[in-house]
Design a protein around this nucleic acid. Structure first.
Lengths: 338, 338
DNA sequence: TTGAAATATGATACCGGTATCATTGCAAAT
DNA sequence: ATTTGCAATGATACCGGTATCATATTTCAA
């Protein structure tokens, strides 16, 4: 802990000197080892080991114009699904020698732009962003600095970038259709905040269009917009219960909201699914283990992360012929609550 | 998306040329603006703006030997409390111009060491690690490269580093004592994996010593070690239920495990707290909203993140006189389940 | 008006790697 | 023996900022 002001960190030149070779040879021995004689490589490795040399990647990236970093932006980390995706992205990146830069924009596009600016200042080799909605300035920066960019979570042919995910619209449509097919007539909807959130918007659109495709009309009083928290889901449910007498089913656009709604029902001695059926979205582990188990949409978060990381690396390597839209699908998990 | 091979990113020299000043003046105008005339600063800012200049922080950190990055390692992101802490650390860091490097070691010390090595290669200005347990090599690297390091989550006077957290031992002790004071006689324990995990170890120690301080003896058959998942908590509960006839209370060392245990009880029509009382640890939002609400230990995760970030920044700035142990305390939340 | 101090700007070098091109050494080919 | 060609290594320069020290300009006191 004592700050030694004239401490000099070990450099490649120190390693080279100890190994009795030139700095470039040392550099090559440690990175592009096929260019040096095995004996030389061993000498250099021994020297590096001896000195506990750890290369300065700032110097490296300045020289070879590759930072070996990938920037990832999610709306929030306080949400298992985003955290899981980051986990799967980072663990795909690490064995390839890439470091993840993680940022969360708290559902704010301006903050996303700021984070992108930071990532560019670190010369991230690629970006992985959530969704299609970004500020104009952010898009311009990405274009100007030519950062390969992958969008995760939702798919759309309107996006400028390669995207990896599933159709939130289609999933919500199918879930709603399924609920209708089960005979529910008055299906409420608790959705996430719509502003700047294409996922929420698409899920709501799926709900609406499924209703309409039956020839029914969508009743706005059956719909609630809610922050992404248990408590907000509970509040939305309470509101639905008081305003809609004949409610027989609720589709919540995420398991968190569904769970909040479920708690609210328990509090009011409303039996699920007997009195009111319930469906969620995301397939979180709570929903799966809870009794009654939550009917929901299972989304391959982990595979999305893997695929996004894979594509980011391929873009960095300059590969071409990568599909613009990568639909990884979803699963309708019919369980107890509907 | 079209790769323009001879694209040159904007450099400070471009900005300087456009502003009609030297590169160093431009550099100063953008970072240490008090050293240039306001008029010059405006000219440079206009030029930088015009060109959408974003400085290359690799070059910057190579020169001034500061990366403006802080490395953070948590066991996993698939856990709300760690994700929340990272969130609070990163949002404290960002306004100060620092970028967080996030890594998760999946409860593996060797992987932690690898991540530390990566962080050092990026010349992180400080590290924030979880807990006190690290490999010998990791400690040596931290010492050799003199990286200011903060440990979060647990406090101990045995650690080499500054730590910010609360006493997991004391919290578990108090919870167990509380359960005893409520008249429970056969208190089971479901703890996390102990290996290389000082938090789990300390919590278990708290449980044991509270039992012993009543003159009772600890019954190993009442204790389970469990992975950090709902399902494992449920399995541990099932095992306790079959092996211990007279079980009247269970203390789970995390809310996730408690929740799994609770689900298992519901499955077996065991009423909580009537038949068996239950307590958790962590105060997650599920436990708070669930009915019955979970009795648990509330830990100030967010304040821990804030404080850790604050201390990391002070260490980077070379401040001294920072407390080695920063105990942020905990709260025993008595709710429905015990 | 002069000169000293303070302020503002500039020239140069350097951070620590590696790209690039040059050189050396050596085996195989002529 | 000489040339050719490739493998291995090295010298130099450069990536894009900024530290450092030097120089120019302004300010203000005497």
């Amino acid at each position: 802990m004592s700050t030694n002001p004239d401490h000099k960190p070990v450099t490649i030149r120190d390693v080279a000197r100890l190994a009795g070779v030139s700095p470039i040879t040392a550099s090559r021995a440690l990175s592009k080892s096929h260019l040096v004689k095995p004996a030389t490589r061993k000498k250099v490795e021994a020297a590096a080991n001896e000195l506990k040399f750890i290369g300065n990647s700032a110097a490296g990236s300045l020289s070879n114009r590759r930072s070996n970093m990938v920037g990832i932006i999610v709306p929030t980390l306080s949400n298992a699904i985003f955290a899981d995706t980051i986990q799967s992205i980072t663990s795909s990146l690490m064995p390839e020698g890439f470091q993840a830069l993680v940022g969360s924009n708290e559902y704010c596009l301006q903050r996303e732009e700021d984070i992108i600016r930071t990532f560019i200042s670190h010369r991230a080799d690629a970006l992985i962003l959530t969704g299609h909605t970004h500020t104009q300035a952010a898009e311009e920066l990405i274009a100007q600095y030519m950062i390969p960019t992958v969008e995760i979570w939702n798919i759309s042919d309107k996006s400028n970038h390669i995207c990896v995910g599933m159709s939130n619209y289609q999933a919500a449509f199918e879930m709603t259709s399924f609920l209708i097919s089960r005979g529910y007539k008055n299906i409420g909807y608790i959705g996430g905040i719509l502003e700047n959130n294409d996922r929420s918007q698409d899920r709501m659109r799926g709900y609406r269009e499924a209703i309409e495709s039956c020839g029914w009309s969508v009743d706005p009083s059956m719909m609630r917009e809610s922050a992404y928290e248990f408590a907000s889901g509970a509040a939305a449910m309470q509101s639905l219960l008081t305003k809609s007498r004949n409610l027989d089913c609720v589709f919540a656009s995420s398991d968190i909201l569904a769970f909040g709604a479920l708690m609210e029902c328990q509090r009011n001695d409303i039996r699920i699914p007997h009195d009111i059926a319930l469906a969620g979205f995301d397939n979180t582990s709570i929903g799966a283990i809870h009794k009654p188990a939550l009917t929901t949409i299972s989304v391959p978060w982990q595979r999305i992360g893997l695929k996004a990381a894979e594509i980011a690396l391929r873009l960095i390597r300059g590969e071409t012929g990568i599909n613009k839209i990568n639909d990884l699908g979803f699963d309708l998990k019919v369980r107890d609550t509907a």
